[in-house]
Write a protein that binds this DNA or RNA. Structure first.
Length: 588
RNA sequence: GUCUCAGUAGCUCAGUUGGAUAGAGCAACAGCCUUCUAAGCUGUGGGUCGGGGGUUCGAGUCCCUCCUGAGACGCCA
């Protein structure tokens, strides 16, 4: 497949072994170490050139020979290498074709061993606290919050594959001046009956209306600030209204989370830190970091950053104050070694300031804090804004996705068992995958038809490929449930029959074994989109293999090899989808 | 204005430490279901990698500069 990981030249772990093995033949002649040579090696842009290549330009400098001459000479060194089928010089490149049968068998055995492919122990003993989702109380759960939810969940899942303990924290927006605004709006033009009939919609409408009116009457903003101050001071009447808002919001959020399959270890809203902020302010003062400025209290951060506001001139706390308290709590209470904040990129400066303040306070864990930023979800090129009422509700999108998936099942697979459950898995999977496949930092311009596409590079495409593997294995009588080692087809071919490994089989094998490196890289770069893209590559390579190579009607060792490969695909896709938080039905 | 991020096919996007002729998907068009699920496969067309300099054997990738877009920039979160 031309878009496969093979052509993307991923540095894959099984291939790394082969690189080293090949490179070891060149050490004597070049004077370079095998590691240095292996690092130079790459996958040729055009697969017809070979499976691996060594560009000889850098060698030319130390060997003082022309690159084509070096390539020619090195080709001779590979005559005795068992994993090399053919080697030839093309210009300054040495192109190597691997022995397909040997490598395919090796790869299947390696994947089946499952020692490091789908899990490892790099993070054993370490805890990573992840701040994710964090929707705002009294506002609809929008497509914008989906990003934080699915990226955070995927990262948590991936970290766990490396043995990290994760703490998933939903940092709910349940505190702040916005509640002053809603309280003022509710008291001014709200109506209890209307609100209780449709709480979030109505509360959000009040919020939008407040902003419209505050443009004309700025004194409303003062009233809102005063209302929030009353809340902070413990006014029981306002607190009752506030608790009501949390209650109705959480009920609606939980419905969405159930659909998405999102789980948290803790729902800790910003208000949770109310009684922990005085200590932070005191500590800042004791450490001599707090300064008065225009009636407010701030921490100066030098030339490169604006000061961080700690307390408003009326004494009320601010967002940074709560995040400081939260960070200290996470470091102390959860013993977090890494603190990840999956929050939109527009808050970059805010987190830089909070981390800088922690550093000035002398906390070394400040260096373990990371803002995992992501791009905006836009609509029609414009930023979604709750205040302007310009948002897409996630629930609407999910409902539409499920409806469309159900219609397609009705059309293509009318006798499917559990059709409703599968429609949910596919519809929701499409929405989640669409979000995760895009590079984190890129903005997404939301359109319903793109988010709900079921063809091409989509979640359903991957789910479909997975269901196909299950279907074949089921018919062969070897399908096992789950991603366990026991699930693997046990009989691997042990002969190296010529032409057993055709192009489709070979490219599938190469793509498949890349999943190990992708998983590790996705964790290192905190980028789930790598996994999503690689799942597409595997699915694509498998679909080609499926088309070109009959499996059930083949015989003997060829059939065994194809079944083993099919099962390896099944397990790899199942893992990848599980990491991404997407269901993998065995039949769709 | 300052800072940050981005600019690759009509649209949405891939392109690891600089490597060979820049790739997918969607949309369009043309093929493939008596054969393991056609949510699939194959093929065709489609490009000054925003512009211009520079670094070097080699730049979509690194540096500088300009243009464009988005975001942030003290009492919202």
């Amino acid at each position: 497949m031309s878009g496969s990981a093979v052509e993307r030249r991923e540095d894959v772990m099984v291939l790394q072994r082969y690189k080293l093995q090949i490179a070891s033949h060149f050490v004597a002649q070049t004077g370079w170490t095998a590691e240095e040579l292996a690092n130079l090696m790459e996958v040729p842009p055009d697969r017809t050139l070979g499976d691996l290549a060594l560009p000889c330009f850098k060698l030319a400098k130390t060997m003082r020979l022309a690159p084509p001459v070096i390539a020619q000479a090195l080709a001779q060194d590979l005559q005795t290498c068992t994993i090399v089928h053919h080697a030839e010089a093309t210009g300054g490149y040495l192109n190597v074709r691997l022995t397909r049968e040997t490598v395919t068998t090796d790869t299947l055995v390696h994947l089946r061993s499952n020692e490091t492919v789908f899990q490892d122990a790099r993070g054993a003993g370490q805890t990573v606290a992840i701040d994710l989702s964090s929707p705002n109380i009294a506002k609809p759960f929008s497509m914008g919050h989906l990003r934080s939810t699915v990226i955070g969940t995927a990262l948590a899942n991936l970290f766990e594959t490396s043995g990290y303990k994760t703490v998933r924290i939903n940092h709910l927006g349940d505190w702040g001046t916005q509640f002053g605004k809603i309280i003022v709006a509710y008291r001014t033009y709200g109506d209890e009956a209307t609100v209780s009939a449709n709480p979030i919609t109505e509360l959000n409408r009040l919020y939008v209306q407040f902003h419209e009116e505050a443009n004309e009457r700025p004194e409303l903003d003062d009233a809102a600030r005063a209302a929030f101050k009353r809340l902070e001071d413990g006014n029981e009447e306002d607190l009752t209204l506030w608790r009501y808002m949390i209650d109705v919001s959480m009920k609606e959020f939980e419905k969405t989370y159930r659909l998405l399959g999102t789980k948290f270890d803790y729902n800790l809203g910003e208000s949770f830190y109310n009684d922990k902020m005085d200590a932070v302010v005191d500590e800042l003062r004791e450490k001599g970091l707090l300064e008065e400025s225009d009636g407010a209290e701030v921490v100066q951060l030098g030339e490169t950053m604006p000061p961080c506001l700690i307390r408003r001139s009326d004494g009320a706390t601010l967002y940074p104050t709560r995040d400081l308290a939260a960070a200290l709590y996470r470091a102390r209470h959860f013993h977090a070694d890494h603190l990840l904040y999956v929050v939109g990129g527009e808050q970059r400066l805010h987190f830089q300031q909070v981390f800088a303040v922690l550093r000035k306070m002398g906390y070394t864990f400040a260096d373990a804090c990371e803002h995992i930023a992501f791009g905006l979800m836009r609509m029609g090129g414009k930023k979604m804004s709750t205040r302007k009422g310009q948002i897409v509700r996630l629930q609407e999108v999910l409902d539409e996705a499920i409806t469309r998936a159900r219609a397609i099942i009705e059309e293509k697979n009318p006798h499917l068992q559990n059709a409703d459950a599968v429609a949910r898995a596919v519809g929701v999977g499409a929405v989640i995958f669409n979000d995760l496949k895009t590079y984190r930092l890129h903005d997404i311009d939301f359109t319903m038809d793109t988010a709900l596409a079921f063809d091409g590079e989509t979640g359903p495409y991957v789910q479909y490929a997975h269901a196909r593997t299950c279907s074949i294995l089921r018919k062969a009588g070897v399908l096992q449930a789950g991603p366990s080692v026991e699930g693997w087809v046990t009989s691997l071919p042990n002969t190296h029959a010529e032409d057993a490994v055709d192009d489709a089989t070979w490219y599938l094998t190469l793509t498949l074994q890349g999943i190990e490196a992708i998983r590790v890289r996705a964790i290192e770069e905190r980028d789930p989109s790598l996994v999503a893209k690689h799942a597409l590559d595997i699915a694509q390579a498998f679909n080609r293999f499926y088309h070109d190579c009959p499996i059930l009607t083949s015989d003997g060792e060829l059939k065994a090899m194809r079944l083993a490969l099919t099962d390896a695909v099944r397990v790899a896709l199942l893992h990848a989808m599980t990491w991404l938080g997407i269901e993998a039905p065995s039949e769709i």
